[in-house]
Design a protein around this nucleic acid. Structure first.
Lengths: 219, 219
DNA sequence: TAAAGTCTGTTGAATTTTCAACAAAAGGAG
DNA sequence: CTCCTTTTGTTGAAAATTCAACAGACTTTA
């Protein structure tokens, strides 16, 4: 498990918890490692939400399908991030979303009840971890609000610009890669793919942005 | 403060905490009561997010304005609910939204740092409260996901139906009042008001729903 | 390297949404 | 009760989005 310490140290759940305690905690949490190939479903919509995940490597997406099979991408997941924790912590819920591997993934599955209730060993790091988990959820909350702000825009153009502005703010740079291809970006922004492509071309012609594939520059 | 016990008992933050401990806790939290008239801003977008609120009476809305002043309603707040807690718990944030009184309101303002850090009295109910707060945030998270699902629909018609289905599920009844007037519903669903009215009329003509003002029936 | 498959940009037509303006209905104030 | 204000429904025109179809660019696989 030691090979994952680099990632786990960056995971907000273990903030200010030292390596020496990590191993004990992981077993205490009943954490187990799992692998998923590209396109595989890590968590399936509708299944019980007892476990949450920590992405160790690869990348994943949180998605939802409506009655007609239209895909909507809620967010991407990068290594070190938690996923599904809100559903696990709310209790008595089934998952309203799926989590799908975007490329081969390694994940750590954690039983949420082990986090929420102090372990029988009475280890004192639980308190820290619960605090960390709370802050993580607060931040996730804010992230979802951001998405609401982006997809709440009325036009495709405004959605694109709001998304790019958000990425600029998050990376601190006017030049960055986005984690989506065109279809995925469309599914994230809740717009039509061809309309999205057309609008991106227009923004390029107007000299507002530049991009090549998934690399964008704000001018 | 005793007159508010009825409401506070329903507040998720105080789940399983008995009345006798409540008074001590409230002072321990540095909670203070405040009143706001209709249309008054309880929390302003951009201001520091140190306090969160508990609505004691009245009703409020969490809203956001974009550059052009377009209003977007993120959610409504009813008595007993917390608001602003995610922003306060994420730390180092300013509010990305405003909270506005929809009618005369009484609120309890709570200093988030008092909740997150065990009080000097070392009262044991903090643990329970932190647990409650975490579950509250997890649920809020899920609520925002629901909103994302509703507003993520591509057409006005689908948004209306998704919203009404959500209300039906939440109330458990096919007949209910919605907490919005037409303009507010439009701002919540992120659509044009006149288009919304037109679509509601159409749904009525088609015999899919019935409504009078803000009372809706799913047929 | 060639072939097959996927992703992206373009286009035009059909559909929808937005916008602006107005009139009817409902609610509130005096 | 009447006047005034706010809310709601309707309409038509303008603008934007979606849809379907296709061609070229890029990837992957055999």
């Amino acid at each position: 498990m030691k090979k994952y310490f680099g990632i786990l140290r960056k995971c907000s759940l273990f903030d200010q918890i030292e390596d020496q305690h990590l191993i004990a905690m992981l077993s205490c949490l009943g954490a187990r490692r799992a692998e998923f190939d590209k396109k595989y479903t890590i968590f399936a919509e509708g299944s019980p939400a007892r476990y949450f995940g920590i992405l160790l490597s690869g990348s994943a997406q949180i998605i939802r399908h409506d009655y007609y099979g239209n895909r909507s991408i809620v967010s991407g997941v990068v290594p070190g991030e938690l996923f599904g924790e809100a559903f696990a912590c709310a209790g008595e819920q089934t998952l309203p979303v799926s989590v799908v591997a975007n490329e081969p993934c390694e994940v750590l599955l954690v039983d949420s009840t082990h986090v929420l209730h102090t372990c029988s060993n009475g280890c004192e790091f639980h308190r820290r971890m619960i605090y960390n988990l709370m802050r993580d959820m607060a931040r996730k909350n804010i992230m979802v609000y951001s998405k609401l702000e982006i997809t709440g825009k009325r036009s495709t153009r405004e959605k694109i610009l709001a998304y790019l502005a958000h990425m600029e703010q998050q990376t601190g740079k006017a030049e960055f890669d986005i984690p989506f291809d065109r279809q995925e970006l469309a599914d994230y922004l809740e717009v039509d793919r061809s309309g999205l492509s057309a609008e991106i071309s227009k923004l390029k012609r107007e000299g507002i942005i530049d991009c090549r594939k998934n690399h964008f520059v704000l001018l």
